[in-house]
Amino acid sequence: MPARTPEPGGDPHERRLSAEEFAAALERHSRLFWTMAAGVLGDPSEAEDIVQEAALMAWRKRSGFDPETSFPAWMGRFVRFVALNQARKRSRRATHPVDPEGMAELVADEEGGLEPQPVGPKGELLASQSAFDDRVLAGLEELGPVPRAALLLRSILGLTYREISEALDVPEGTAMSHVHRARTKLRDVLGTATGGAPLVEKKA
């Protein structure tokens, strides 16, 4: 590894970020960290708490950050660490998942019949948006935490593969491969959910 030129005054690691610099860097990338946390967990509900906990952990260990390197890459490790820990805690207390379709039927039976299905302009039956979203979420659950986070960073924030690779600390080709496989998986899940028929209505 090429040796770094020491900064005047000693080791670059010794130049700590000030609270203002740290808070500014956090703020600048906070949407990225939030999406990463939500992606690792597969659930947005705790993402903000995860990012906050990671930020405090990173702040305490900021002496390990070299200001010449990437802040999102460094901070991203804390976010993933906290999120993965939380995911493991969840999996330990996980119960059997409830099939959303089964639940809908159960609720419909209790309420005395099925809800009318939405119908398109030509009278065709449209897939319910929330049912579609549920299936997308179910497909996301089948992905690993990092591919899921990679997909969300690409789809929601529109990051480039280089940015994703930096944030997730994986090579760029791997980031691309994660997104590709995640998309393929989702397509497969959504395809089989309707027995191969397209689940979404065609757009004009």
């Binding site: 703020e27 906070s30 949407r31 960290f33 939030w34 903000e48 906050q52 930020a55 969300l152």
Partner: peptide
């Protein structure tokens, strides 16, 4: 996944 405008 509605990303908050400023999560932190």
């Amino acid at each position: 996944f509605p990303v908050p405008r400023s999560p932190l």
